[in-house]
Amino acid sequence: MTSDGWVPDILGDGFEACTFPAAGPDGVERTATLVRHLPGPAAPGSAGETDAPAAPDADRDVPGGRRPRAVLFLHGWSDYFFNVELADFWTGRGFAFYALDMHNHGRSLSAGTHGGYVADLDDYDAEITAAIGIITALHPAAEPAPTVALMGHSTGGLIAALWANRHPGLVSQLILDSPWLEMHGSPAVRRAARTMVEPLARFRPEAVIRLPERSFYWRSISSAAEGEWTLDDTYRPPRAFPVRAGWLSAVLAGQSRVARGLQIEVPILVLISGASANGMFWKESMRRTDAVLDVNTIALRALSLGRTVTLERIDGALHDVFLSAPRVRADAYARLARWLRAYVLDDAGTA
């Protein structure tokens, strides 16, 4: 362990982790883990060679040309950060890359706690704010404070949007990868689910809701099945953590806030698959669609986030567009790079 608390990370060379406590608005202290990427001349990949585009020189920082830039990534529910390629993409464009394993997830799991559980999405606020504070403190005092972009996937995208709305001015851009902004189907499904779940969540928040267990998405991404990504089943169980009443109620409440409209002022990019596939049985189309969310519903709800929203639909993409087949995620990275050239500006206002 270094003197500032950083230790070698499970991802190996080029990655370090720092575990820290943060007290939420309810006064409860929770543990989260910040991961950082320290790229070297040959940073390793988690899944072999890919077609992700390399950063052109014009995308890189030049001394004295721009303020330092950083990005903080939030994973989805029942997940953790493992995508080395994503980290390489960001550092290749001059960003310091960080990822947060939020409390009760991944590197922050501890014995005796319910994996993935939270009773209020606001409970993540303290650790996200603390992580940004750590990121800022790591930069030399003589330099300008870095701008921080916030990126979130799935439930992490919902959490990121709500946090950015409650904390204006702390992040410079918001990038959402298949954010879980609405229930599958329509707002009516969410309202009906909330009516049924809230009484149980009020009196027995940790009660498990028995839902059909499906591992179709895990099957499409894990190298232990038919995907290409090496996953740690301790951190990301194939069938996900049990769904508990309090957690589902928290998600439904967060989605309701989005439905009423947020006022996020920074530029927002939303990336989703071109199509969804749902059902109780595996279908081959699940290899090239979002098998978790209703992408058409998400596309509509994204317009409720703020005044400047860009939507990119990635044909052939999975639920996490950056875990899709190499050709598909190369398209996603190219679209993300194009958006960054448009919306990540230096202090003089030029790209």
Rank of each mutant, 00 (worst) to 15 (best):
residue 213 E to A: 12
residue 259 A to L: 12
residue 251 V to T: 08
residue 96 A to P: 05
residue 198 E to P: 00
residue 115 G to T: 12
residue 110 S to W: 01
residue 103 H to V: 00
residue 142 A to Q: 15
residue 329 R to E: 02
residue 311 L to C: 08
residue 169 G to F: 10
residue 284 E to M: 07
residue 303 L to M: 06
residue 267 P to S: 12
residue 221 I to R: 03
residue 197 V to K: 04
residue 169 G to T: 11
residue 300 L to I: 12
residue 102 M to V: 12
residue 244 R to P: 07
residue 98 Y to N: 05
residue 162 L to A: 05
residue 322 F to D: 07
residue 230 T to C: 07
residue 281 F to S: 15
residue 333 Y to C: 03
residue 262 L to E: 07
residue 228 E to C: 03
residue 258 V to G: 03
residue 270 V to A: 04
residue 215 S to M: 10
residue 303 L to Q: 14
residue 241 F to Q: 04
residue 226 E to I: 00
residue 68 P to H: 10
residue 54 A to W: 02
residue 214 R to H: 14
residue 251 V to N: 07
residue 284 E to W: 09
residue 156 G to A: 11
residue 229 W to D: 02
residue 5 G to C: 13
residue 284 E to C: 00
residue 149 A to E: 11
residue 134 I to C: 07
residue 134 I to R: 14
residue 300 L to G: 09
residue 286 M to S: 11
residue 178 S to Y: 02
residue 155 T to F: 10
residue 102 M to F: 01
residue 324 S to Q: 07
residue 188 A to K: 10
residue 180 W to K: 01
residue 22 A to H: 03
residue 214 R to W: 07
residue 150 L to W: 04
residue 301 R to N: 07
residue 287 R to Y: 15
residue 179 P to Q: 06
residue 193 A to N: 05
residue 279 G to F: 09
residue 350 T to Q: 15
residue 96 A to H: 11
residue 237 P to W: 03
residue 234 T to D: 11
residue 212 P to L: 04
residue 191 R to N: 13
residue 167 H to Q: 13
residue 236 R to V: 14
residue 247 W to E: 02
residue 22 A to T: 06
residue 197 V to G: 03
residue 147 T to C: 03
residue 288 R to N: 11
residue 247 W to Q: 06
residue 287 R to H: 14
residue 2 T to N: 15
residue 218 W to L: 00
residue 171 V to N: 04
residue 156 G to V: 10
residue 282 W to N: 07
residue 239 R to P: 00
residue 335 R to L: 08
residue 249 S to T: 00
residue 159 I to Y: 08
residue 216 F to L: 05
residue 252 L to C: 09
residue 18 C to V: 09
residue 259 A to C: 05
residue 293 L to H: 12
residue 25 P to T: 12
residue 228 E to F: 01
residue 272 I to L: 15
residue 270 V to Q: 04
residue 132 I to L: 14
residue 303 L to I: 01
residue 144 P to Y: 10
residue 144 P to F: 10
residue 139 H to D: 10
residue 223 S to E: 11
residue 284 E to H: 12
residue 263 Q to T: 15
residue 61 D to Q: 14
residue 9 D to H: 14
residue 264 I to L: 05
residue 189 V to K: 05
residue 257 R to C: 10
residue 315 D to Q: 14
residue 194 R to E: 13
residue 175 I to Q: 08
residue 326 P to W: 08
residue 149 A to K: 02
residue 161 A to W: 05
residue 139 H to N: 06
residue 231 L to S: 04
residue 175 I to V: 15
residue 305 L to E: 11
residue 18 C to W: 09
residue 81 F to R: 09
residue 237 P to S: 05
residue 202 R to F: 02
residue 59 D to I: 00
residue 119 A to Q: 07
residue 158 L to A: 08
residue 122 D to Y: 04
residue 246 G to S: 08
residue 86 L to R: 11
residue 309 V to Q: 03
residue 175 I to H: 03
